[in-house]
Amino acid sequence: MSIQKRIAIYGKGGIGKSSTASNVAAACADEGYTVMIIGCDPKSDSSITLLGGKRIPTILDLLHEEKDVKEEDVVFTGYNGVKCVEVGGPEPGIGCAGRGIIVAIQTLKKISKTLNEMDLIIYDVPGDIVCGGFVAPIRKGLVKEAYVLTSGEYMPLYAANNICRGLAKINTPLSGIICNSRSVSHEKEIVTKFASEIGTDLMAFIPKEQIVQDCERDGFSVMEKAPDSSIAQVYRDLAKAIMQRDTSVMPVALDDEHLRELTR
């Protein structure tokens, strides 16, 4: 077995982390890799497009019911063998989702053998790192490298920059920037420049295409529903690039003024 990759995809809320994560997971599976996707969002929407639109019981659901959680209760097989896990969490505004992630990750670590057999594990995290719980996968050593997803707009870049600062603070290497396009002008140049100034590379430029949302609505990834689309090829290339990537850096965040200048 090759060296296991454990990555997390960070980025501003709503920028496209979950759809990118699931499409990359599917593309890697197509390439013959064993893949697990772990959704760390109380919304539990990371793996839904790999499971034909179906929701699976979450780790925290089962813990809430005071059940003795076993691997087969929480690890489900989706598209092309991708292992799907959802951490779950409380309803918005109740309890503590951050603590939830910590507890769920500890549980998963304890009960899952599959975890160690994977070529790639993707952690799909919610947009904003609001408390310590949201970096538990990193702190507990389950994430080895991070990718940051952004568009060329100012606010997503601002968030991406902040995330880079945070990653450096908790000693987590950055392996690359991924651009999920929002069709703004000079977008590719802006994000390429941002990536290089942070100290890394642009891994992919994913165009904004209606088909992503159409597939999602039907409960599928692009890879499954529209494998011949041009965007499917982009995800495929990104998947290969991630699997081959062997460099990462401690990112150096830009100062605010510089960042603003970049997007002008």
Partner: peptide
């Protein structure tokens, strides 16, 4: 307990 922390104790 741990579950109470995560889901609240209402």
């Amino acid at each position: 307990d741990e579950t109470g922390f995560v889901f609240g104790g209402h």
